[in-house]
Write a protein that binds this DNA or RNA. Sequence first.
DNA 1: AAGACGGGGGG
DNA 2: CCCCCAGTCTT
Length: 350
Amino acid sequence: MDFSKTLINWYLKSKRDLPWRKTSDPYNIWLSEIMLQQTRIEQGLPYYLKFVEEFPSVFDLADASQDNVMKLWQGLGYYSRARNLHETAKYVAYQLDGIFPKDYKGLLKLKGVGDYTASAIASISYNEPVAVVDGNVYRVLSRYFDIATPINSTEGVKEFKALAMELLDKEDPSAFNQALMEFGALQCKPKNPLCDSCPFNTSCLALKENKIGDLPVKIKKGKIKNRYFNYLVFSSEENKTLLQQRKGKGIWNGLYEFPLIETTSDIQESGLIEENKEFQELVLDINASISLYNDRPVIHKLSHQHIHARFWLVEAENLPRIGVSVEKVKEYPVPVLIQNFLNEIDIENL
DNA sequence: AAGACGGGGGG
DNA sequence: CCCCCAGTCTT
């Protein structure tokens, strides 16, 4: 039996029951694929359900405010996905009359849609014969064919895409692509793959060569940076505090946070903060008193940086800028670091 | 070609 | 602690 037949047979009896598998509507497929980029299904699933309930069609998503989209995305990470999602929804709704591009080439032009996602939508929604190559596919193919080319090198990307295209079942690209990914997720797992019960355990080259644990090969990326964030949590007599929206290139673009003073090292004495120029500009003329909230810094770990966060309570009669009512703070989209702080304190009674 | 971009889960 | 996850965009 050939590779595709064996794979699809495995899929038909092993696949999970997932909501986006009940439809081929490109809106739903697109939404699920964007959400699942670099994200485990168990983590993304509740977000998908929230989104389809809140935004049943691309028009509903297009008509939402950016803050509302970001709020629903809060906690899922890689927030540029949410901004691109919203921008693409508006583009499809208003420029394309709600009709998604009909093929891989057209889909690839959408913001936030790269080679993987364009292939996924084209194959799943339109049955176009284009192969998907995600982390699962890299793992399965590198093992089955014993290929040690680094999967995140330029050559590796081309090599695995070409191999997947060659292998693709042109009669049923949708089932083949989803089967290959599901197989990687459930059977050919990164750690402790289920080789004993694997339908390919007589033909898998890496298994034969005892190299399962060495594949796929991936080039390791750089080191983690430490950053020191000092958040100023204002409280005032009119029960307002200060929030600001992050802009620009860095992390959490578009999310809200308390006024931030970033320093080059951890600061735990209020005197040092009070000497800070940014701090002085912010609290000038408001006669504030400051105290450190957290005894130890909160270490918020991201994949590429560790953020050491201190929260400083700043009491003032009047705020230096227009404030936000404390009972409305939880309506804003915020990073998980801020969300955790808000869950811990009683912002409405500072 | 190399970095940046989140957060959670598993071993 | 390190690796991985239905990747994409920027530099």
